[in-house]
Design a protein around this nucleic acid. Structure first.
Lengths: 131, 131
DNA sequence: ATATGTACCATGCGTAGTGATGGTACAACG
DNA sequence: CGTTGTACCATCACTACGCATGGTACATAT
């Protein structure tokens, strides 16, 4: 895995990392079960903050591209190749684009939509804390 | 129509105006066809900026609570009473709450959702500009 | 002339979110 | 002990947006 981070790039650093790991998986450069460098190790190599790398790893694990085995390190997920192609982001974009379009068509102002969106985001009400 | 604006109130000034006009309509204090004070007039009376009043009027007209007859002034819409009860805002809130809930359930981060939302808002692509 | 709604230009202030940085600490493995 | 992932604390710069303000100008009606 040759990961190259470009600070000049407008794409956020953690995002570049995510993208490149997924690319490495899809390109067959790393395979299921392969060990990945530790967070601190990679942070050191790339001259990044460990929190930045951790953020990338967190996202990669959420997408089931990698697997963190606690104290044993991080490995490529068994279904990494398939999962790295899942376009969660694409679905996100599409969903929101449609919703926004619908709202706009009703005559609602962008301001109003933004405010309501922020309210929806700040309103705790998902499956988090419950008895 | 006795409109009272409270600068201390956390509710935005233009919003207070909108609310109170709708209340006046629903309370029967003003009726269809009644003339409303001009933007500048009202701005002067309430010691508000004319742009602030104009903003309120713009929203009220969008909701078909009032009607601007160009140079002749502003009047209460024929269906003002009914239209002032339409809860566009409520629908907005509900729609976005549902959408956000769905997205969150998929594991998406609030950050990701916010970013995608902003992209959706900044992406011009509805039925607006066309040749 | 005066007043109407509206459009454009602009500013300031406050808030909030993102990205990235840093330090410290923990439990559990080798 | 050293390392693992992770969680908590914190800071800073940058950007974007909302609200409200101000000025100027326009075509059109009375």
């Amino acid at each position: 895995m040759d990961i190259v981070i470009d600070i000049e790039d407008e794409e956020p650093l953690f995002s570049q990392l995510v993208t490149q790991v997924k690319a490495a998986v899809q390109g067959g450069k790393v395979r299921a079960g392969d060990a990945l460098p530790s967070i601190r190790q990679l942070a050191n190599d790339l001259e990044l903050n460990s929190k930045t790398v951790a953020k990338a790893y967190r996202l990669l694990e959420r997408d089931s591209v990698i697997q963190t085995r606690g104290y044993r390190g991080t490995f490529v997920h068994p279904d990494a190749k398939a999962n790295s192609q899942v376009n969660l982001q694409g679905w996100l974009t599409k969903t929101l684009a449609e919703t926004v379009a619908t709202l706009r068509e009703s005559g609602l102002t962008d301001s109003e939509i933004r405010i309501a969106f922020n309210q929806a985001m700040n309103a705790r009400s998902h499956g988090a804390a419950k008895s």
